[in-house]
Simulated scan of single mutants.
Amino acid sequence: MTRKIYYEDSYRKTCNTHIVQQHKDEIGLYVVLKETIFYPTGGGQPHDTGTMNGVVVTQVEREDGEIRHYIETALPEGEVTLELDWNRRFDHMQQHTGQHILSAAFAESLGYETVSFHLGTDLLTIDLKTPSLTSEEALHAEDLANRIIQEARPIETNWVSREELINYPLRKHPSVEEDIRLVIIPEFDYNACGGTHPRLTSEVGTIKVFDWEKHKGNVRLQFVCGDRVRKQLQGKHEAIRNLTSTLQSPEGKLVEAAEKLLHKQKDQEKEIESLKEQLLSFELKDLVANAATKVSYTYIKGAFTHRPIKELQTLAQNITEEYNQTVVVLTVQNDEKLQLVMAKGSEPAVDIRSVAKLAFHLINGKGGGKECLVQGGGEAVMTPTEFLIQIEELLD
């Protein structure tokens, strides 16, 4: 089994070691080493990356009691030089230790225990065992966590047996029975953890809570630590700067400017809906004026392009509600789709569903509806006007 150098010294960036075996699995080509500085995925922390004799290490996983280093190309047997992607490693050290500190702060100040943890590429999340969280509580825990960071407390590691755990006030007891590694911030946090951590809390830099939401009866909290705070701040600063330019408003009045814009948009949407209703009213009169008289009903038809099918449904229903002796057929082409709306008033003894079924067959389509309203569509194998002619023949 690979010796865990990364447990012993999180700061070790290079290492010379030997390949024990080289194989391939469903993920890809991997090597097992005599010893390693690469951290495998586990405990909520992602794996390290880097190089092995210059060959990129893309993934590191623990499988069947061994640590598998997945590489892009095969390596000759013998000694290899490992080199970490240090920026990634140190980021994970900051984030993981920041999570320890923030979780301890919630437990210490509010009694909210952390039940799960995830370290993502942009944000971190912890699930707190509480049904709700207030802004004041979140800020209180964040302040405590940052005080611990500023005090530059030492971060210690200690290997203990199961029997020795009684000597430490652990927040959560480990699931393993042996080789238990404790990460300790004296007089604040005692945690069983195999992850990578800095030597002092001050190296975490800072912690910032962003948001939280309810999740499966708990609260899922989003936050970042260390250099990620600066990156997030830069991103938010650029977004605010763009908004101040777009909205022509100073930063302090962005919310007010956005609310005015939203109110204006709602007013415009109401005005548009009113104009659409007027347009449909004019279209209704125009279609009725050009209606044809059949033996037992008045036939109204219309062919369109680039019109929402819902608008035509509304138009057809409005006509049949006002003129109950009518049969209405409206066709429309939207891109490569040919669509149909058929409606009838209460008087005509016409089975529009049967007619529509035959019509849909002509365009390799399908549809459905009620006795007085049918809609559907298919392929644009003909123009809307040609489709109308075919439907009128079916009706006749």
Results as ranks from 00 to 15, higher is better:
332 V>D: 01
339 Q>L: 12
381 V>Y: 06
313 Q>M: 15
358 L>Q: 15
337 K>V: 13
327 V>C: 12
326 T>V: 06
334 N>D: 11
325 Q>G: 08
320 T>H: 07
332 V>Y: 06
320 T>A: 02
376 G>M: 01
323 Y>M: 12
355 V>D: 01
382 M>D: 03
342 M>T: 11
342 M>Y: 03
377 G>P: 04
345 G>V: 05
384 P>H: 01
310 K>L: 13
344 K>C: 12
319 I>D: 03
372 C>P: 09
344 K>G: 05
371 E>G: 07
373 L>H: 13
370 K>M: 11
333 Q>H: 00
378 G>R: 08
317 Q>T: 15
383 T>Y: 00
323 Y>Q: 11
318 N>S: 13
344 K>L: 02
339 Q>E: 15
313 Q>W: 02
347 E>Y: 09
386 E>S: 14
359 A>V: 05
309 I>P: 03
368 G>H: 03
363 I>H: 08
378 G>V: 10
377 G>N: 02
336 E>Y: 12
365 G>A: 08
321 E>V: 11
356 A>S: 13
331 T>G: 09
365 G>Q: 00
378 G>K: 05
365 G>I: 02
348 P>G: 11
354 S>Y: 07
340 L>R: 03
360 F>C: 02
321 E>N: 14
341 V>G: 02
376 G>K: 05
341 V>L: 05
370 K>F: 10
353 R>C: 01
345 G>Y: 08
320 T>S: 12
359 A>R: 01
356 A>H: 01
322 E>L: 13
369 G>N: 06
366 K>Y: 09
383 T>L: 08
319 I>Q: 05
334 N>F: 00
383 T>R: 02
353 R>Y: 00
346 S>A: 14
358 L>C: 12
320 T>I: 15
354 S>W: 00
352 I>Q: 01
375 Q>H: 11
322 E>I: 10
347 E>I: 13
361 H>Q: 15
346 S>Y: 10
367 G>K: 06
354 S>A: 14
373 L>F: 14
358 L>E: 15
347 E>Q: 13
356 A>G: 00
375 Q>D: 08
311 E>I: 10
380 A>M: 09
335 D>R: 13
311 E>K: 10
338 L>G: 05
366 K>S: 11
312 L>P: 07
345 G>I: 04
313 Q>P: 08
324 N>E: 15
365 G>T: 04
319 I>W: 04
330 L>V: 06
315 L>K: 01
373 L>V: 11
340 L>Q: 07
320 T>K: 12
355 V>E: 03
325 Q>I: 07
343 A>C: 10
361 H>F: 09
382 M>V: 12
369 G>S: 09
384 P>G: 06
365 G>D: 00
322 E>G: 14
370 K>D: 09
312 L>Q: 01
376 G>C: 06
342 M>G: 03
380 A>N: 09
314 T>L: 14
341 V>M: 06
323 Y>A: 10
347 E>F: 13
348 P>L: 06
333 Q>T: 08
338 L>W: 05
346 S>V: 13
342 M>S: 06
340 L>V: 08
359 A>T: 12
335 D>N: 12
374 V>C: 10
337 K>L: 00
317 Q>R: 14
344 K>V: 06
360 F>N: 04
343 A>K: 06
339 Q>H: 04
328 V>C: 11
340 L>I: 10
342 M>N: 02
357 K>G: 10
385 T>C: 05
366 K>V: 05
332 V>G: 00
352 I>C: 08
327 V>Q: 08
350 V>A: 07
363 I>A: 05
382 M>N: 06
338 L>Y: 02
331 T>K: 03
323 Y>W: 13
331 T>N: 01
